[in-house]
Simulated assay, not measured.
Amino acid sequence: MPEEVDQRLGEIESALAAFEDRPMLYEPTEIARAGVFISIDSEGRLSVDRGYVRPEDDVLETDPDVGQNADVSSTEGQEPGTSVQRTIIAVAGGTLDAEEDDEDTAKPLPDRLITELTAHRTLALRDALAENPAIAFQAVLHNFVLTAFYRFASSGNCLEIGLRTPTFPAQAPGLRESASAKAVEARHESWKARLPRSENDLWDALTALDGGAQASLFSHCASFAVNAVYEPANRYNQSRVSAHGVRTRLDQADVLARAVGLDMVQVGWRPTVDNYLGRVTKPRILEAVREAKGESSAQLIDHLKKAEMAKEAERLLDGSGWLPEPLRLVDPDAAPVAQEGGAGPLPEFLADEEDSENVSDDDPRQLDAAE
């Protein structure tokens, strides 16, 4: 295509676009009685819909009967646009039976009948969905994605499965800057760029994904519902949580952590003054150093004040892989660890002496020696 022709076509397309996108113009009389609806769209932007008129401000159309075999004098003295109330006179034999008229008129279906019919459809749809695991998985995924990515999506959904993202009651130091937080945010933004802008196009977009992509998106959405946070069952939380409920939550979190092989050391957590050492007592600090580095390292800092002790403990624990108890992955099948201070194996020379004392009196060798 010649360059001048292509340039001319571009000018025509620009002119057509400007013609199609021109603003709507209203008459001054219409502007005086019309208004707008202001709302927020699904992307959080301002949405303004113009050209709406309230029923009481609407101008009534002129009755076509006026001027055609009608008494014009009956409307004299009235303002234009006002309606005229007429009296209907029924002559003998001219009235219709009300019941027959109701039977012959097409009316909307009764609400009760619609409820009963849709109950049959709901039960049939349940059975059909149970026979199609792939569509059932996509239906749950569709619900999860609506909740996770479309903040202003309609709350009505035929699949009543909710995805609730719990909030953190306290903002831990360094939580937003942690490696886990950055990984979750990067994954979310990556999926957001692949999903359609409108929720109406979401089902077709999910259908176009292969099984691996659907499973990955499902895992991402399901992860937002994880709640492994400890909450004290005190008088401030009595109406919301209980000690048993929190304990059950943490036990299930341990099961999930073992299933995915969670290691808080590998994800980048390490004890610092801000996130642990500066917020516990001195015996706790010494206990951490003792567990990670031994008694000799703990004795090096046991004479320091708490601030200096916490700072030195952070230096000693760096790279040790030590974790506080709430972050440890406990294996329920592991053998119990022997308590510190318990009696260990005796030295060899004491063991020999004890064995000689435990020799039975009826041992023949012992009798021979006595003789």
Score class of each variant (00 low, 15 high):
A343T: 13
W203G: 00
S360V: 07
I301P: 05
E20N: 12
L317D: 05
I40A: 06
S239V: 00
P55C: 02
N237W: 04
E30T: 11
E340M: 14
Y52I: 04
A90R: 13
A338R: 06
A292S: 09
K293Y: 00
V72D: 15
A172K: 12
T75K: 06
L316F: 04
E4K: 10
R50F: 09
L16D: 03
A153G: 14
P364F: 03
P108V: 03
L175Y: 09
L367D: 14
A128G: 05
L316A: 05
A181C: 07
E295Q: 11
R328C: 08
V255P: 00
A181Q: 14
P347F: 01
C158I: 15
L109N: 07
L146E: 12
S190E: 11
L25R: 13
V184P: 00
L250Y: 02
Q266I: 04
T29K: 14
S242A: 09
L159A: 11
R54F: 15
E308V: 01
P332L: 06
R284V: 13
L125S: 09
P80V: 15
L286I: 11
S155V: 11
A106T: 12
T248Q: 14
G278N: 09
P232M: 08
E27M: 05
E314M: 08
F19M: 09
P345F: 00
Q85G: 05
S190Y: 11
S74E: 14
A119G: 09
I114F: 00
E116H: 01
D104Y: 00
T122I: 12
V246Q: 13
E348C: 01
D368H: 04
T87V: 11
V226M: 13
S360A: 15
R270T: 14
L304C: 02
E199Q: 13
D97G: 06
R270P: 01
A310W: 00
E61I: 03
T62G: 00
A292K: 05
F37M: 05
F224A: 15
R290K: 13
E353I: 02
D127Y: 07
E13Q: 12
Q7N: 09
A130W: 01
R258K: 06
E99V: 12
V48C: 05
K293E: 11
V330D: 07
D21N: 15
E131V: 01
E4T: 07
A98D: 10
K311C: 02
V226S: 14
I89P: 02
E189H: 12
P169F: 07
Y150L: 06
G44L: 01
M309Q: 09
G44W: 02
